[in-house]
Design a protein around this nucleic acid. Structure first.
Lengths: 120, 120
DNA sequence: GGACGGATTCATAAATTCATCATATCGTGT
DNA sequence: ACACGATATGATGAATTTATGAATCCGTCC
């Protein structure tokens, strides 16, 4: 079965989107994507060194990222190089960081208010 | 326990990000967010009608969205109104759609190539 | 204050995802 | 062709998430 059929055929957009977010919903995978977003391409060996993961564990997450069409693997000279498949992947990471910053700021303010009224 | 502590304290960014994506990683939640992105605020009754879900089921997903600080609930006159907590939430939806469009286009082209070479 | 509609929480079984270990593949050098 | 380093796949139990139904909470109206 072609991956595109699983991803798109006869499925409402919100299901496909949710599926995309599932692909992003793991610390290891986000970490890998962040590393990839910082350079043109990265060999698996470097990812292994960066993350300190067991090879098969990392490999499984890379497989998930490939299945979701988020990264592209390139085999050259006994090593495999990964890169982001689309610039939007990096953009998702950027927007999510911006959102998290705002959330953190808001919850901090709320904490301040709580503390202030408690001590008043 | 304050929600912000669970989300942010002493956790590397990629874990927090992954957690955010987890909050988005369900069709019902994406659907709800898409509806919310289209109007200023929406009462739960409307969400129920739109999605056709069982009340408790929808409520649980709304609870997840609240816990992730993605939406804000507002109780007024026996009804509860929801709205997006930050514009970045809508932006995440937009970027993800753009990404999916590109993925679909690419995989379509690949299909074309496959078919062409098979029949050549 | 009691009943009612609207929404949430709780409890639990089913489904999914994750981590770990063993095994398999793919390319390169000998 | 064989052995080796690099990466991927398969299988399994553990942990997490989801769907469903029962019970509860919160305002409003009588």
């Amino acid at each position: 079965m072609n991956p595109s059929s699983a991803l798109f055929e006869h499925r409402p957009l919100y299901e496909v989107k949710a599926n995309l977010f599932k692909g992003l919903a793991h610390p290891v995978r986000v970490r890998v994507l962040e590393v990839l977003a910082d350079s043109v391409e990265v060999p698996v060996a470097d990812l292994l060194a960066d993350t300190g993961l067991e090879a098969s564990h990392l490999s499984q997450h890379l497989s998930v990222l490939r299945r979701h069409n988020l990264v592209i693997a390139d085999r050259r000279a006994s090593q495999v190089y990964y890169r982001l498949a689309y610039p939007q992947v990096a953009e998702l990471l950027r927007v999510s960081r911006s959102l998290l910053v705002d959330i953190l700021e808001t919850t901090r303010h709320q904490l301040d208010l709580t503390v202030a009224s408690a001590s008043a």
